[in-house]
């Protein structure tokens, strides 16, 4: 299956809130509907995006109420899927981004593990103004 001929760029802003996560999934599902990839992969990609958005709510904003928005940008070019997340929360300390040991069974710490399982690469960058954080998830869909 190849997505090499399809080119997509879609972006949307969401209020940084747990109540936006449903809307984030809905946006992601609509974008992935356009791709000829199997449903399991679509579901995984939606989960990865929702987990990353949840991390912004939980960690960059510590779950505090805000009117700030985060931006999610989904791009596909020559089969390379890139999902960008932009937020204005607390700067992410890259050294602290790690999932818990998967064999240490306790609530929490799984979101980052899921993202890493699903995506090929996870890169944190300093955001260009007005953004503070820029997270990039990538996956090669040429298979």
């Amino acid at each position: 299956m190849s997505e090499g001929t399809i080119s997509i760029t879609e972006q949307k802003d969401f209020v940084v809130s747990s109540s936006s996560l449903k809307e984030v999934r809905s946006f992601s599902r609509k974008v992935f509907e356009k791709l000829d990839i199997n449903q399991d992969l679509k579901d995984e990609l939606v989960l990865a995006i929702a987990e990353a958005a949840q991390n912004i709510v939980k960690h960059a904003y510590k779950g505090q109420d805000t009117e700030d928005k985060m931006e999610i940008k989904i791009s596909l070019d020559k089969g390379q899927l890139e999902i960008g997340f932009f937020d204005k929360g607390r700067p992410v300390d890259k050294e602290n981004i790690r999932h818990r040991n998967i064999d240490d069974i306790k609530p929490g710490g799984l979101g980052t593990y899921f993202i890493q399982q699903i995506m090929d690469a996870v890169v944190f960058k300093e955001g260009e103004k007005p953004w503070i954080n820029h997270l990039i998830l990538t996956k090669n869909l040429n298979f």
């Binding site: 989960l47 929702a50 609530p107 799984l110």
Partner: peptide, 14 residues
């Protein structure tokens, strides 16, 4: 279900 839901399952189980 996302990681938050899984956390509820773990917490309930424990």
């Amino acid at each position: 279900m996302d990681s938050s839901g899984i956390s509820v399952l773990i917490e309930s189980h424990q």
